[in-house]
Design a protein around this nucleic acid. Structure first.
Lengths: 109, 109
DNA sequence: AACGTGCGTAACTGGACAGTTAAGTAACTT
DNA sequence: AAGTTACTTAACTGTCCAGTTACGCACGTT
């Protein structure tokens, strides 16, 4: 769950969001932020160490791509808690749909 | 997404995990950690400010309970990325289960 | 070979944060 | 009312982290 610490920073979350749309060079990325290039370089390093992005050298360009695996890990971490708000929603459902058809039981998976 | 910063700390994640099993007093919580009581108190404050826990005074005890709403928010934040590894897993599925029965399609909800 | 471009690393600074001990507040006990 | 229990807040310390400017390195160009 090292990804959580990496994602705690809003700049890094924006980088992740940008890369979700497709890979980009370090410079292109940096141009979209109000901070200096080295700052972005450091953010990319943190993301890299957290496994969230991967680099590929292409000439003298460094192309960054998102690696979704840590996000999937995060999803897995979140999974056991899901019932907590599902419950809430279920309760809401129950409240809202009193007298719906009885076949409402569908546990996950 | 302030919850992400709160959850970046392992101690706070453990507190959240403990509270998922049921509410607890501050002291009971603190006893399960190798750090001092004030330290736990501060962690609880951070969690409280992130909306992840709620306190209730019961005599001189402070009973803490998990509030799953920020977790659900986090889940919602994660949702758009889900396709990224779903793709991956689909590819894996395809590879692993060449010629499994065709009725494999069950999207969530 | 000299130079420009694209990025990364180094060194430094300011601010946030987790931990500690000590002190403060509120409720129950006797 | 004096003391104990349960917890928080205050004040301080060390460490980490995001930002900056300056420098270094590799690739490509002419």
């Amino acid at each position: 769950m090292e990804a959580l610490a990496a994602l705690a920073d809003p700049t890094r979350r924006r980088i992740v969001a940008l890369l979700a749309a497709g890979e980009q060079g370090a410079g292109e990325l940096a141009d979209q932020f109000p901070v200096s290039r080295p700052a972005i370089s450091r953010h990319l390093r943190v993301l890299r160490e957290a496994g969230l992005v991967q680099v590929r050298a292409e000439g003298q360009r460094r192309v960054y791509a998102l690696d979704p695996r840590p996000l999937s890990e995060l999803d897995a971490w979140l999974a056991p808690y899901r019932r907590l708000w599902a419950q809430r929603l279920d309760a809401l459902d129950t409240e809202m749909a009193r007298g719906r058809r009885a076949r409402t039981q569908e546990d996950g998976r």
